Simulated scan of single mutants.
Amino acid sequence: MKKKMIVLFLSLISSGFVPALAQDVYTTVANVPMVQLNNGMLMPQFGLGTFMQPSDEACEQSCLTALKAGYRHIDTAHAYQDERGVGRAVKKSGIPREEIWVTSKLWPTEYGEGKTLKAIDQMLERMQLNYIDLLYVHQPIGDFVGAWKDMERAVAMGKVRALGISNFDANDEVFRVIMDSARVKPTVLQIECHPYAQRLDMRKKVQPYGIQVECWFPLGGAMSQGALFKDPTIKKIAEAHDKTAAQIILRWHIQEGLSIIPGASNPDYIRENINIFDFSLSDEEMVQMRQLNKEKRFFNATLEQVEQMVWGAKFND
């Protein structure tokens, strides 16, 4: 019955009809809530991030493990060099395509009118998919305005369903430029966000536009050296719920209304991360988690350093 409801719900979205308060009603097969984007579409609030997968083949196995565990949202990027693995997993899973939300990102070397539309076709070919659910400009560098115009064309052509901006928290100027230029407004902003860097100013900035905040490094990432897992407050709350520190952190994001894409290749961690929908943090515990905020990011490269990385990157395709 639940599967039939999801299929019905997805068909309603495809036709442009979205029930009121749908994010409070609909969930995926694993009880993952859906968030309603500012274009009316619904996106699973929780997904698998594929950054730093050991290989394209390992990514395929990670995605298959995740899909079997109930994940229905996968985040990749051209820069991750694992889009093919994601596409193979989607096909091999046996799950109807319309039940899986697939996200990818364009690299700045692919930005520019005409150039970006070709890059989108190449992305679809790599993943062997007919459409991408959410497509980001990965970094606010280069001709992202030209890229956005082609991305809007891809939406009109049915090749992409929703558009997003990644790392557009670099400064006020890049955010203003993209918002002023866009006819199809961004639906999602992807940034580093976790209990030590809750990004309150950025979350407030996008709120008037109805832009959903999605968090990379929700558990701090490798650069954090497990700092969040060692936090006494988080550990105490985890003991109270008989959950791991990671599960408490992820649950906090969900209750804050943030979308999350924790990355993992270890099958046990993949299954552990999604096992957060059978409990809730109390109001007091949420306050305790919010009090951990230091606006301390673990990825601290400047925009100039990111530019050097961008133009020096070499991809296989």
Rank of each mutant, 00 (worst) to 15 (best):
G49W: 01
E272N: 15
A264H: 03
R72D: 04
T103G: 06
F46C: 09
F229E: 08
A245Q: 12
H78E: 11
L124Q: 09
R126V: 14
T116I: 09
S282N: 08
Q247A: 06
D121N: 13
V145E: 04
V306P: 03
L292K: 06
L163A: 14
I100G: 03
E83S: 06
M5H: 15
G146S: 05
V184Y: 14
R297Y: 02
K236Y: 08
V174Y: 04
P96R: 11
D231P: 14
K205D: 05
L117D: 06
W311Y: 15
V35T: 05
A238M: 15
D242C: 11
G16A: 13
P19S: 06
E272I: 13
L67A: 03
G142T: 11
E60N: 06
R183C: 14
M309A: 10
L48I: 06
G112A: 11
V188Q: 04
Q122Y: 10
Q198P: 02
G220N: 10
I211S: 02
S181W: 09
I95F: 14
V177W: 08
G49M: 00
A222T: 12
E256M: 00
G220L: 10
G142N: 10
K149T: 05
T187W: 07
Q255T: 07
V174P: 05
G47M: 01
K115W: 09
K118D: 13
L303F: 02
K235I: 15
Q190N: 03
Y71N: 04
E285M: 05
G16T: 13
M1N: 11
L258H: 03
E125D: 12
T116M: 08
W311C: 11
R161M: 09
V35F: 08
N275A: 14
P267R: 00
K2L: 10
T65M: 00
K314D: 03
M123I: 12
K2G: 07
T116Q: 09
A89P: 01
K243R: 14
A240E: 12
L219P: 07
P267S: 00
D231W: 14
F229D: 06
D278N: 15
V287D: 12
A147K: 04
K149H: 09
G94D: 08
A154S: 12
K185V: 04
K68F: 05
Y111F: 13
T28N: 03
I261W: 00
I254H: 02
N38I: 03
G47I: 02
